[in-house]
Design a protein around this nucleic acid. Structure first.
Lengths: 217, 217, 217, 217
DNA sequence: CGTTAACCGAGACGGTACGTCCTGTCTTTAG
DNA sequence: CTAAAGACAGGACGTACCGTCTCGGTTAACG
C-alpha cells in the first residue's frame, strides 16, 4: 500500500550510524517521475535524477540497484490511486476499472515507463518479481474486489467451498485480468487509439458476455 | 511481406556509384537477432552488431537511424511466418492464432524486443508508424482473415454492404484484435504464465461467447 | 623525538568528556605504514587506513587534517632510528650516514611516501613546515653531529667564536646537507641505482675532497 | 628531442582508419601544463585537462595510460630547452648548468610535477623507464657534454682508451650527475631555499674540489 | 576503358552516462 | 566530549556507446 524502496538493510531503530534520509527518498522518486515526463524512459539517466533531486549519485545506488528498480518504485505509487467505487452493477464496475486504468496509462510517466520495465523484466527475474508485487498485484486486486462485489450482489454465483479466502482455483480471475489489462494496454499503447466511453462499453459487453459462456460449466 | 530497410535513397537501378551490399543487410539483421538473444534489448549496442556482422558502424547508420529502427526491422521478419491454417471452425482458428502468436513471443529475440520498441514508440511517432506497418498490421491481417473465413463458413453474419474491401466501420475488428493480442502478450510477458492449450481453449471460449453478445446489433 | 599527532586540542588531563584513545593513534600510524607498503602513496586512502586500524574515519580527521599530514607523521618515526655511531673518522662517519639514509630509503613505506609528501608540499606551506620539523631536521641533526665530532677529533677547524650553539653562519652545513641528502635520494629514487659500499666510498671521497676546497677560506 | 606521446599504435601512414589529430596532442599537453600551474599535481584531473583542451576524455586515454604518463610527457618538453652554453671554464659551465636547472625547478609546472611523478615511479617500473628516457637522460646529457668540453680544454684528463663513445666505465659521470641534480633539487624543493649565484658558486667549488680528489686514481 | 560517385572497413573524434570509489562532513547511538 | 557506524553531497575515475567524421581502398555503371 505504501511505496518503500525495499532496500536491503534492516532499517530497524537502534541501528548504529546515521539513518537514511526519508526526504531524499521522496525527492528522488518525484525527480524520477518528473524526468520520465520530460525525457521518457530511454533518455532518463541516473545522474540526471540525482541532480534534479539535489542528491548524490551514491545515494541513489545505495537504495536502488539501477534505473529499472528505481523507475518501478517511482511509478508504483501511481497504482495506489486505483480504486473501485461501487457503481451498482458488474458492468458499470468493469467499465469503471477500464476507464481508470486507461486514465493512468494516459499519464506520460506511466506510458513511457510501464512497457519499458516490463521489457527489461523479460531478462531479469528479480525485476519481474518486483514489478509483480509493486504493480501487477495492485491492479489485480481490483479484479478480485469486483468479482467479490458481484457475487455479493448475486450477479455471479457465490464462491465455491474452500475459496472464501480469495482466488479461484480454476484461474478464471487470472484470465479475466489478463484480458482486461492486456486489451486496455494494447489499445492505448500499441494501437494508439483512445480508450473512450464507447470502446469501454463495447469491451465490457464482450467480456461479460464471454464470462457467461466460460464460467458456468 | 519482405523486409526492406526502408532507408532514404531511391535504390533505383540506374543510380551512379557502387550499390549497397545486399549481403550486408541480411548479415546485419541476423547479427541483430543473435545479439538480442544473447544480450537482450538494453545491452544490445550498435557497435556490437556491427562487429558481429563484420561490418563498419557507418554501414549500419547509412541504413537505419538507430537501434530502434534496426530492431524493428530485425524482428519484423519473424511476423512474416504467421499464418492461419484453416482448422475447420472459428474456435479452432482463434485457438490457432493464439497459440501461434504465443509461440512467437516465446522466442527470446521477440520477447525482449517487442515490448521495448513499443515502449520507445510512446515518444517517437515515426517509430510507432514503422512498428504499425512492419509488425502490427501483419498480426491484424490474421484477424481479418479469420473473420472472412468464418463469414464464408456462415459462422458469422456476412459483411454489411459496402465493406467487402476489408474493415468493418464499427471497429469490432479492432476490438477483437486488441483483446487477442493484448491478452496473449499480458499473459506471456506480464503475468509470466504459459499460454498453453488449456488457457487458449478457455480464452477462446470467452472471446467467442462475448462476440455473440457484442456483434449481433 | 617522539611522534605526536600535533592536533589542536590542549589534551589537558582535567578536560571534560571522554579522552582520546592513545591506542587509536598508534594503530592508525601502523595501519598507515602498512597501507603504504601494500598500496603505495597514491592508492592509499583515508577510508582504507581507518578500516585497517579498526577506527572510524571521524577519528582520523579529528587528529589529522588529511592524507598528507597523516603520512608525514607515519613515516616521521622512521627517522627517529637514524643515529650516528662513532666510527672513528670523518670519512667513516659520512659513509655511515650515507648508508643509513640509503637503508631507510629502501624501506617501501619511506620510498613511496617521501617524494610524494615533498611534492605535495610545493603547494602547501604548512605541510612543508611539518615536513621540515618532523623529517628534515631529524636528518640534518646527523650532519651537525658529525661536524661537531670531527671538530672534536681535530679533523676540522674548531667552530668560530659565537657559534658554539649550533649552526654556522656561512651555510656550509646547509650546503653539505643538501649535497648528501640530495645525492643519496637522487641515486636511489631517480637513477634507481643501489647505494652500495663502493658508491658511498666514492661519494664520501668527493664530498670530503670538496670540503677542503670550499671551507678553509 | 621531440615530445611524442609514445603511444602503442604504429602510426604508419598507410594505416586504415582516421589518423589521430596532431592538434589534439599539442592542445592536451598545453592544457596539462596550464592545469599543473593552476592546480598542482594532486588536484589535476584528467576530466579537467580534457575540458581545457576541448577534447574528449577518450582522446586522452587513447594516447596516455593515465595522469602519470600524461604529466611526464607534458613536462618533458621543458627539458628540451636545457642547453650548455660554453662559458669558457669548467667551473663556469657547472655554475651555468646548476642555475639553469634551478630556473627550471622554479617554474610551477615543473616544481609540482617532477617530484610527484618520481614518487609514483617508485611503484611503477614502466613509468620509471619513461621518466628516465624523457627527462633524466635529457639532463644527464649536459653533464656528459660538460665533461667532454672540459677534456677538450685540458681541464680534465682525456678519456681513457675505448671510451671515446661516451660514458666512463667507472661511473664517475653518474656520481657527478646524482650529486648535481640531487643537490639542486634538494635545495630547491626540500630545503626550500633559493639556488642563487652565491650558493651555485660554493656548490661548484665543492664539486670541483672533490672531483680532483676522486678521479685521479 | 577510364571516370566517377557512392560504397566499404577501419578507427579517431567530441560527447554523455555509467557504476564505483574516495573525500570530508554530518547525524545518529553508545560510552 | 569521544567513539564507531554509516549516510550524505560532491567529484574524479576509467569504460562503454553514441553518432559523426575522416581516411585509404573497392566496385559498379556511365561515358
Amino acid at each position: 500500500m505504501c511505496s518503500r524502496p525495499a532496500a536491503t538493510p534492516p532499517t530497524g531503530p537502534g541501528r548504529p550510524g546515521r539513518p537514511r534520509s526519508a526526504a531524499a527518498d521522496t525527492a528522488i522518486l518525484e525527480a524520477t517521475r518528473a524526468a520520465l515526463v520530460e525525457l521518457g524512459w530511454s533518455k532518463l539517466s541516473m545522474s540526471d535524477v540525482a541532480t534534479r533531486a539535489g542528491v548524490a549519485k551514491t545515494t541513489l545506488y545505495r537504495r536502488w540497484a539501477g534505473k529499472n528498480e528505481l523507475v518501478v518504485d517511482a511509478v508504483a505509487v501511481l497504482f495506489d490511486e486505483l480504486e473501485l467505487p461501487d457503481r451498482g452493477s458488474l458492468a458499470a464496475d468493469v467499465e469503471g476499472v477500464v476507464r481508470q486504468f486507461a486514465a493512468l496509462l494516459e499519464r506520460p510517466e506511466a506510458k513511457t515507463a510501464l512497457m519499458a520495465v516490463v521489457a527489461e523484466s523479460t531478462r531479469d527475474e528479480p525485476l519481474r518479481e518486483r514489478i509483480r508485487t509493486s504493480i501487477v498485484e495492485r491492479q489485480k486486486r481490483l479484479v478480485l474486489q469486483g468479482r467479490a462485489r458481484a457475487q455479493a450482489r448475486g450477479e455471479l454465483p457465490p464462491p465455491a467451498e474452500g475459496q472464501e479466502g480469495g482466488g479461484t482455483a480454476d484461474g478464471t480471475d487470472d484470465l479475466i485480468f489478463d484480458v482486461i489489462a492486456g486489451a486496455v494496454v494494447h489499445r492505448a499503447l500499441v494501437s494508439g487509439e483512445p480508450v473512450d466511453r464507447e470502446w469501454a462499453r463495447r469491451f465490457t459487453a464482450l467480456l461479460l458476455g464471454g464470462l457467461a459462456a466460460v464460467s458456468p460449466d
